[in-house]
Structure formats: structure tokens, C-alpha cells
Amino acid sequence: MKDDIIILGHGSGAGLTRRLIREVFASRFEMPTLDDAACVDHRIAVTTDSYVVDPLFFPGGDIGRLSVTGTINDLCVCGSEPAYLVAGFIIEEGFSIARLRQIVDSMQETAMEAGVKIIAGDTKVVERGKCDGVFITTTGIGFRPAGVELSTRNIEAGDRIVVNGSLGDHTVAIINARQNLGLLPAPQSDCAPLHEIVRILLNTTKLRFARDATRGGVATILNEIYEDTGLGLILDESALPVKQSTSVVCELLGLDPLYLANEGKMVAIVSAATDEMLSQLQAHRYGWDSAVIGEVTTEVKGVYLRTSLGSLRPLLMLDSDPLPRIC
């Protein structure tokens, strides 16, 4: 393909569009054609999400990988096996096709990692300045096995709270990149598909409920659980897995890792933290620093953290993303 940037004509639906789809998207997603829709079976889980990250490429990932993991993880945490994705692209006039190919590569590699096929899509081109490079929307389709019903309704006092690893890494990677903080080595996003993590949980313990800890972080999910169930949740500060680099950036900017977005971490509520569960999680590359971070209880009303000093600090629901501060 001779063109190296997207022009408005690529969004026309005519020859240029067909060529773009054939040569950039369909060939890479290994589909003979890439239509707007595809038919699938029943007992389906469906989800959709849009991705507008800035910067588009960041340490540990890019918008392509994010658009696949984000949607796959939404399917996984409701207990379904992710199977198909459809992807919509809004691309800014002037965007480099080489960069677009990089993003598409990322999407396909990540999809293949999870055994997911990208089967349909749509592209639109907008005038220069009308979007930041590229926006991606992915809709995911998964199949829920019979007998798997994950819901906050299942949660009971005594259940354990588990996370599959260190908290806050994605947000810290993005802040460092966007704000040019110049931290070295550059903190990496944890962007990852969690289908195997969920499988381990389903096989080694009674998994009550799971949610991926994206915007709002772990603390937000726990507050949602409290709102749904009325059961209290207490976290143990000394059990929280936090990378030193993330901890340093949080101290620098006055942020709390419990409220920061992750892209490869989930909160799981399980009946018991079995040895088998922990050893299998910790043997997995996306679960090596998994930890039991707290428990569900009737002792308190709300979400709390027990500090290393023994005091209980409330963890309230925030209204918005936490802001860096100097004071």
C-alpha cells in the first residue's frame, strides 16, 4: 500500500476504505473479509467499551492491546470464555498508517494470546483535530459455561478478597508518560488478559464474584460490593501488593494505589484462599504477586483498611479520578 497516512477518503466507504480494510485490518486479523456484523451461538456474554488513552503508545502497552484486554477482561470476570471481538475505529485525518499497523498488530497478538478472534469491524475517518489520533471501540462476545454464575449475591461474610498482583501500575505508567516526569526506568503498565487467572480461580476455589480493577481501582469495586450487599470489607495494609516504583510515584504525587486504575488486575471474592489457588496464581505470569488482601465481614459497615499501626481507615467511594497534588 503506497499511502502512509489516513486521509478523509479512507472513511468514504468506497475503494480507499475497502483497500484499507483489506490491507491493514482483514489481512492482520486473518479474516477473508471484515464485515460490519457476524452471527454467533446462544448463552453468550456480550460487552463493549471504548478506548481513548493518551498517549497512544506507553511503556507496557498501547491503545491496541488495551482495547483487547479491557474487553476480554470484562467478559472473563463474569465467568465467560472470551471468543470474539468486533472493533470500531475512529481515525484522525493525518494519522500515520505505519502507527495504525502497529496498533493493529498489538490487537491481534493480544487477541491470539487469549484465543480470541477479531471477526468484524468498522472504520470512520474524521477531520484533523476531531479526535486524538485514534479511538477504538471493541465489543466482545464470550460463552458462559453452565453452572457459572458470578454475582455479588453470592458473597458471604468470611469470604476472602484476592487480587492477582501489584496495584496502580497502569496509572503510574500513564502519568509518568503524559506528564513527562522523567522517571527511569519508565514504570510499565500491567495491561494483560486475565482469562487464565479466572480459570484458575474457578478451578481451585469457590469464586463468588470478580471484577477487573480499572478506573477507580480496587477501592471503588469494594465500595460497589458494599453498596450491593451491605456486607463490610476490611483490607490489610501489610498484605497489599504494591511495587516499589508505584509506591514512590504515589508518595511523590499524593496518590493512593487503591484508587488507581489497573489494566491487568482484578478483584476476586472467593470462599477460601486455598493453597492450590495461591500456588497456581503465583505460578502464572499475570498472577505471580497475587495476594489475599482482606476479608468480607459483618464487623463493619463499609470498606476499611487496617493500617500497619492497627487503626481502621475508611475507604470511601471517590467521585472522580484522584488528582496528583503537591500539598
Binding site: 516526569l181 522523567g182 522517571l183 527511569l184 526506568p185 514504570p187 516499589q244 516504583s245 509506591s247 514512590v248 510515584v249 508518595e251 511523590l252 504525587l253 499524593g254 497534588r325 503537591i326 500539598c327
Partner: peptide
């Protein structure tokens, strides 16, 4: 009103700037 963190001076770029180790992460200050 004053978030400040400790760092160990690793090198001086010149008289007015240096790189500190904040704990596994370095930054120029």
C-alpha cells in the same frame, strides 16, 4: 501542604541539576 520525598543523589548533571534515586526509580531534579 508539602508533599516531599527523600532521594539519594546519584550524580550531578551540572552544578544545578542532579539525578536522585527515589527507591528503584530515578529522576532528575
Amino acid at each position: 501542604m508539602c508533599l516531599a520525598i527523600p532521594g539519594r543523589l546519584l550524580n550531578k548533571v551540572d552544578d544545578s541539576r542532579g539525578t536522585v534515586d527515589l527507591g528503584g526509580i530515578t529522576k532528575e531534579i
